[in-house]
Amino acid sequence: MNLHVEYEQEEDGRWIAEIPELPGALCYGASQVEAATRVEALALRVLAERRDKGEIAAFPINLETAGNALA
């Protein structure tokens, strides 16, 4: 499964990181790196829960960034 992380910076300086392939997987951070770290951890928890419930089969995961590249 390929997951893409998209970033946007709010007017107040906070960053939003979102994974469109997982509805609701959106996290804020004080920096782009912090937002990315949080949303990636959230994505792994969501996928693990779905796997534990038998909703999805095991599969390799590839996380890619979109938009602004992390520094």
Rank of each mutant, 00 (worst) to 15 (best):
A57E: 14
I56P: 02
A69N: 01
T65A: 03
G54P: 12
E40T: 15
L26K: 12
E10R: 12
D12K: 01
G29E: 08
S31D: 02
I16V: 12
G24T: 09
E49K: 10
P20F: 11
L63Y: 15
A36M: 09
P20V: 12
R45A: 03
E40N: 10
A41V: 09
E40K: 15
C27V: 03
A25L: 13
A71C: 02
A71N: 05
V46F: 13
A30E: 15
E10P: 01
E6P: 03
T37V: 09
T65S: 08
G29D: 02
G67P: 03
I61Y: 12
V33Y: 11
Y7S: 00
A43P: 12
A71W: 05
E18L: 09
I16C: 08
A69C: 04
L42H: 14
V39M: 08
A57Q: 14
A41L: 10
L26R: 14
V5M: 15
D52R: 14
G29P: 08
L70F: 03
E10C: 01
A66Q: 13
Y28G: 00
A35L: 03
A43Q: 12
E64T: 13
L44G: 03
P23M: 03
V33A: 14
K53T: 10
G24A: 05
A41M: 12
V5S: 02
A41I: 09
K53W: 10
E11M: 00
L70G: 00
H4G: 00
P60T: 06
A69P: 05
T37H: 11
A58H: 14
T37L: 01
N62D: 15
D52L: 04
R14C: 01
Q32K: 07
P23E: 14
V46E: 12
N2Y: 07
N68D: 03
D52Q: 06
A66W: 08
L3A: 05
A58C: 04
E21H: 07
D52W: 06
E49R: 08
S31T: 15
E11N: 07
Y7P: 00
R38K: 13
C27R: 13
E40M: 10
V33K: 15
W15A: 00
I56E: 02
E10V: 00
A36D: 14
S31F: 06
Y7M: 00
G13F: 09
G13I: 09
P20K: 08
I61K: 13
E34H: 04
D12C: 02
Y7V: 00
I56A: 03
F59Q: 15
A41S: 15
A57S: 13
V39N: 08
Y7G: 00
